[in-house]
């Protein structure tokens, strides 16, 4: 309570009148510090999303004269931050129907920003060297046969299905139980941990089964092949929307979307227009992502190289 009292004094000193203070109108304290126009972009933890942000940032700064701040936030909190105006745009969203309904339809604090141009697909994958040696592992019905080879210290005698960050969309626990698989879902807890584990296994040519997604730069370094799950149907999706524990089919293919803060779309001027126009291909995104993650270039440097080589792609976004 003393904290509140002290802060209230501070607040009274900082604001001339003791009126309402709307938190959704409070920008980052670092924004516009040097008198420049600032755009804040949310950057998610996976590298594909970082590639989008890096290129958008580079072009906003070098072509349009903005200052760009990036903040790393998980997906669902990023929606919340977007609605509050703490960030101006999310460049890559994999589909969050609940948040879409709450913020876009009901509260109207977030506006859709169009397609990114990349389609995303989630699935289960095994390394190519393992699939080549055992081609029948690529059908889910045969997975139990290989459970003993895919064991790990955390999977308790069952086969290990490696999952990543808890922020990602996943039905894997339901799938394992509904398809009667002798596997345990082991969460790496973060994508960084998952990638490190995959790279380490690949170095030793050890077999593994992992939740993974496309587009992803890691495929260039560790070639993987998708395991076929029961085909995705609308019926299965509707059932899963009601009760996530009943899902028993593959993941859908999702066109990735951009979202902007509603105020920003109205007042963001050139920057908002540019971000709406931002549209590129899977190959473009992967090229930048790989420079960042594999060649260890800084995001800015990677964006610079891509921008230099592909003017025909980005010139259109500036109109």
């Amino acid at each position: 309570m003393a904290a509140a009292a002290a802060l209230c004094t501070l607040a009274a000193a900082a604001t001339t009148a003791c009126g309402a203070a709307d938190m959704t109108k409070q920008a980052s304290p670092y924004a516009a510090a040097a008198g420049t126009k600032t755009v804040t972009l949310s950057v998610q933890s996976w590298v594909g999303a970082r590639a989008n942000t890096a290129v958008a940032k580079y072009l906003l700064e070098h072509e349009l004269g903005y200052r760009v701040d990036t903040v790393q936030v998980d997906e669902v909190p990023a929606w919340d931050a977007l609605s509050q105006g703490r960030v101006d745009a999310i460049m890559e969203d994999w589909g969050h129907p609940e948040q879409e309904k709450r913020y876009v339809e009901d509260k109207k604090t977030i506006a859709p920003g169009g397609d990114l141009g990349v389609t995303g697909h989630i699935g289960w994958w095994v390394p190519k060297y393992f699939a080549d040696a055992h081609p029948d592992v690529l059908d889910w019905r045969n997975l139990n046969k290989y459970a003993s080879q895919l064991r790990g210290p955390e999977s308790g005698g069952k086969g290990q299905l490696l999952d990543g960050s808890p922020s990602y969309v996943t039905n894997d626990k339901a799938l394992v139980s509904n398809l009667g698989l002798d596997y345990k879902v082991v969460f790496a807890g973060s994508e960084a941990a998952q990638i490190t584990q995959i790279q380490q296994s690949a170095k030793d040519k050890k077999p593994f089964l992992t939740y993974w997604y496309e587009p992803q730069w890691l495929f260039n370094e560790v070639p993987m092949v998708e395991v076929k799950l029961p085909p995705y149907t609308q019926e299965c999706a509707d059932k899963g929307a009601k009760d996530p524990s009943t899902v028993n089919c593959a993941y859908p293919t999702t066109p990735l979307k951009k979202y902007l803060n509603a105020d920003f779309t109205r007042k963001g001027g050139k920057a908002a227009r540019f971000l709406k126009n931002f549209h590129w291909s899977k190959a473009d995104q992967n090229a930048v992502a790989q420079m960042i993650a594999e060649d260890k270039l800084s995001a800015d440097e990677a964006a610079k190289r891509w921008v230099k080589e592909n003017p025909e792609v980005w010139k259109k976004w500036l109109q």
Partner: peptide, 11 residues
């Protein structure tokens, strides 16, 4: 809102 505003202002 005021707490948040004061902190942001100070930083």
């Amino acid at each position: 809102g005021h707490i948040s505003g004061a902190i942001i202002g100070a930083v």
